[in-house]
Amino acid sequence: MTIATLRDLYIDQLQDIHSADSQARAVTVKLAEAAENPHLDSALHAGVEGIERGMEAVASILARHDAAPRKGHCEAMAGLVREAQHHAVDSDISDAGVRDAMIIAQYQRMTHYAIAVYGSLVAFAQRLGYEDDAATLEACLSRTRDGDKHLSEIATRDVNRQAA
């Protein structure tokens, strides 16, 4: 697809976040399985549910614009997922607290990518006059930011102390 207008860019980025969320969902399940801290495990499972809600919201927006989720992969998220898999799931980390700290670091990298994309999408939707889309995307952005903040709280309250 040639991107010639802000609407084209908007659709492209909706497809990008749908792909990114799909990839992040799969590795987040693995991160939850690897987590030792019960608060972290719970937060990651909530993260999976949030990612799924975001995917549903984006798919609905795409359908309203006669577009579909992209078949290909978001290359940026693919790299972040590879890093999460390598560093937090497959690596030989003998201390559970250190592994949990690594899981949080890797998950937050993926989350920050999603925050950047959702933020851009909200701005695009507002500029294009798609107020319903903007409200839906703002809710996705807010949930993603809240999840990120919650992980930071778990890290500072429990995990980093245990890892140290």
Results as ranks from 00 to 15, higher is better:
I3D: 00
L6D: 03
R7H: 11
R7N: 08
D8E: 07
L9V: 01
L9H: 00
Q13M: 08
A20F: 13
A20L: 10
A24T: 08
A24F: 13
A24Y: 05
A26I: 07
A26T: 12
V27M: 09
T28M: 15
V29Q: 09
L31G: 12
E33Q: 03
E33V: 01
A34W: 03
P38Q: 12
H39C: 03
D41K: 14
S42N: 14
L44K: 12
H45Y: 11
A46T: 13
G47M: 06
G47K: 06
V48K: 12
V48R: 11
G54E: 15
E56A: 14
E56S: 09
V58A: 12
I61T: 13
I61W: 06
R64C: 12
A67D: 06
K71W: 05
C74S: 14
E75V: 08
E75W: 04
M77D: 14
A78G: 08
G79R: 10
V81R: 06
V81C: 12
R82P: 12
A84I: 07
Q85A: 02
Q85P: 05
A88Q: 09
V89A: 04
D90M: 01
D90Q: 04
D90T: 01
S94D: 06
D95C: 02
G97V: 02
V98E: 14
R99T: 02
A101N: 12
A101Q: 13
A101V: 08
A105E: 15
A105W: 05
A105H: 15
Q106I: 05
Y107N: 13
Y107I: 01
Y107L: 02
Q108S: 10
Q108C: 08
R109Y: 08
M110W: 09
M110T: 10
T111R: 10
A114P: 07
Y118C: 11
G119C: 09
A123H: 07
A123K: 05
F124D: 11
A125T: 11
R127Y: 11
R127F: 06
R127I: 05
L128Q: 05
Y130I: 00
E131L: 02
E131K: 09
D132C: 00
L137E: 06
A139W: 00
C140P: 07
C140T: 07
T144P: 00
R145Q: 02
R145N: 04
R145H: 01
D146R: 08
D146I: 04
D146S: 09
G147Y: 00
D148Y: 00
K149Y: 02
H150W: 06
H150N: 15
H150K: 15
L151V: 01
E153M: 03
I154P: 11
T156G: 07
R157C: 03
V159W: 03
N160H: 03
N160W: 03
A164D: 14
